[in-house]
Computed example of a mutant assay.
Amino acid sequence: MTQGGFHARIDYDEDTDLFRGEILGLTGGADFYGSSPEELRREFRKSLDVFLEVCREKGIEPRRQYSGKFNLRISPQLHEQLALRAQASDKSLNAFAQEALERSLAASGNG
Rank of each mutant, 00 (worst) to 15 (best):
M1C: 10
M1E: 07
M1D: 11
T2Q: 14
T2F: 07
G4D: 06
H7G: 05
A8C: 14
A8P: 07
A8K: 04
I10E: 05
D11S: 10
Y12I: 02
E14W: 11
E14T: 11
D15S: 00
T16C: 00
D17S: 14
D17R: 15
L18H: 15
L18Q: 15
F19A: 13
R20N: 13
R20M: 11
G21T: 05
E22R: 12
E22T: 15
E22F: 07
I23R: 04
L26H: 05
T27D: 09
G29C: 05
A30I: 09
A30G: 07
F32S: 07
G34K: 10
S35E: 08
S36V: 02
E38V: 05
E39Y: 03
L40M: 07
R41W: 06
R42G: 04
R42I: 00
F44G: 10
K46N: 06
S47K: 01
L48T: 08
D49R: 01
V50K: 02
V50C: 04
L52A: 04
L52Y: 09
E53R: 03
R56D: 09
R56M: 01
E57V: 13
K58T: 14
P62G: 04
R63P: 04
R64N: 03
R64G: 04
R64C: 07
S67Q: 02
S67K: 10
G68L: 00
G68A: 04
L72K: 08
R73F: 02
I74S: 00
Q77S: 13
Q77L: 09
H79S: 05
E80I: 07
L82Q: 03
L82F: 14
A86Y: 06
Q87R: 14
D90A: 13
D90L: 10
D90V: 05
N94H: 13
N94S: 13
A95N: 06
A97I: 15
A97M: 15
A97P: 00
Q98F: 09
L101H: 02
E102H: 05
R103N: 11
S104T: 06
S104V: 11
L105T: 09
A106V: 12
A106T: 08
G109R: 12
G111A: 15
G111V: 12
